[in-house]
Design a protein around this nucleic acid. Structure first.
Lengths: 139, 139
DNA sequence: CAATAAATTAGAATTCTTCTAAACAAGAAA
DNA sequence: TTTCTTGTTTAGAAGAATTCTAATTTATTG
């Protein structure tokens, strides 16, 4: 890892009012150094173990939520049994592969959602999430 | 409840190859006798208790899944902490009210999804789910 | 440095869901 | 009917994901 990269991550955390602790920097590195990721807490935890970063699962959860609140991550709800966190925080949608449990981004401009009916009284849109669930073609 | 209604529910179960047991009939009544519902297992369980129907939570879960497999219900994933089951099995979408945790149907023809990009290699669409998350307008 | 406020942690606790193995009920056959 | 087979229900244990607790450690500020 490059020096400047670490400094960038530290700035990213500071800008989000999060102290750049050892654990946060390690997580930020795992999350943001390698393109878009869709990751679960357990997965991130084992990635950290694999990278010889000592960090408890509680801290993983704390930080995933703090990162999300700070707009550094976004939670994607596709599976009722676990939470996925997405490093792409721009508005966009997803393919969800049902067999493998993997997510793939769909850029917002590719896909169009039209004719949303009048919202329930007294509400405003907080997000529009499209999930295209796909499965392997059986042959 | 009307006699014919019970007979209809029994037929509905039989057609789905599910024996119309006391518990299943009671659940079918709670689920299908009163328009579209979006319900959680816990909620259905307390509805049953409220209607003086003795039924265990395990049976609720068993049957929600069996009904879903038989196409009598559809599972809606909107909240990573619990599962919702929808009695409307026609293709359609949802408003999800973030504060109250309630769902509301959006008829398929109201809303249009266009320009879905090419699917991942070797896959086919199993469903396209749109969730319009709304929250109360603060004033 | 010292003070204080924030972050981390292990492990317990919670919540939702599934499993297990035994008891029970439904439908089929005699 | 009665019997047989198989499907269903059940209580409670077990499991999985997540949150909480209270103590300890670490970062930042003065």
């Amino acid at each position: 890892m490059v020096q400047s990269e670490l400094a960038d991550l530290e700035k990213k955390l500071r800008d989000a009012q999060l102290r750049p602790t050892k654990q946060r920097l390690a997580l930020a590195q795992l999350l943001f150094s390698d393109g878009n990721r869709h990751i679960t807490a357990e997965r991130l935890h084992s990635d950290a173990m694999g990278a010889n970063v000592a960090i408890s699962l509680a801290t993983i959860y704390n930080n995933l939520h703090q990162f999300t609140a700070a707009g550094l991550l976004r939670e994607v709800v596709v599976d009722s049994s676990r939470s996925y966190f997405d490093t792409n925080v721009m508005p966009h949608h997803h393919f969800f592969h049902e067999q493998s449990g993997t997510l793939e981004d769909i850029e917002k401009n590719d896909l169009k959602v039209d004719n949303i009916p009048p919202l329930p009284e007294g509400t405003e849109i907080s997000s529009v999430d499209v999930i295209v669930r796909v499965s392997s073609t059986r042959r």
